[in-house]
Design a binder for these strands. Structure first.
Lengths: 144, 144
DNA sequence: GTAAGATCTCTAGTAGCTATAGCTTCAAGA
DNA sequence: TCTTGAAGCTATAGCTACTAGAGATCTTAC
């Protein structure tokens, strides 16, 4: 049996966050010790690790709630999980594209900044590029 | 001169968000019409486009505030902007790595889900993989 | 037995918006 | 010129996903 601190360490989640997850019903109410402290078993650790992993990957708590409810009744169709995964995949792809573009921009910025003052630094220009022949950035960028 | 709605459309930012930015001091208070409505010029559009672009790329508002203050005094050294950009670049790289891993996982999930029920669907397993030889995922994943 | 550290509950604060209520102003058509 | 409907105004409250405090209690190691 794990105390909340041990559980948090094992799953990589902060203690108040665990209590928060319990409060909003993502984690079931655990057993308590004689002195009223929470005690967790392996299944709580699994569940929390799942939540943390999904959160890290950008799933909102509501999607996680859905996925957990699926795992709670594993003999049902996979269609719902599939829908969630597909929806998220689209968002993930868009995010990767944007972040990759940003990475290039940041690298360019840093290179250029290394050689001058703000006057000839492109940081600001790069990030407000709408006015210099890149009016079309919305076509590729605003897909969210 | 643009009304707030036109400005929002031009920059791709919602009207309440513009007012929010003004409230927290990211945008200067604009002129007003005789009837007390906000009126914006080109510089406000530039500034807002910059903010939106930076937000889209994941810069927190405080970093944007810093960058804007730099652009307001463009004859100073670029070092500060460089620091901000570098710090952000590290975070961006980590994010891309995580999202790329997620993309693979989601794609695998969807493929597998297409062929069965939740009973043999890996959605939950994939996302709580700590117990199957991937305990070290924290080493590569929790860098934020 | 005592002292440090972990846990308890509860409340309030954070970022970055978003929504609502109830009002006024503006632009376009009849 | 009147009117009507969209767009604007202020102010406040709500949202997600936590995070931080206060002040009390429990557990554990010496």
């Amino acid at each position: 049996m794990l105390t909340i601190g041990k559980l948090g360490k094992a799953a990589g989640v902060k203690v108040p966050t665990i209590r928060y997850y319990e409060q909003i019903g993502l984690l079931p109410e655990p057993e308590r010790s004689a002195g009223n402290q929470r005690l967790y078993g392996q299944s709580a650790l699994d569940r929390l690790a799942f939540i943390r992993h999904a959160r890290e990957l950008g799933f909102p708590l509501e999607a996680i709630r859905d996925l957990l409810s699926l795992s709670d009744k594993p003999d049902q169709s996979c269609a719902a999980a599939d829908v969630i995964a597909k929806k998220h995949l689209t968002a993930v792809k868009a995010r990767i594209a944007r972040l990759t573009a940003l990475k290039a921009e940041l690298e360019r910025m840093i290179t250029q900044c290394a050689q001058g003052t703000v006057a000839d630094c492109r940081v600001i220009e790069v990030l407000s590029d709408h006015s210099r022949g890149a009016q079309d950035h919305r076509t590729s960028g605003a897909a969210e």
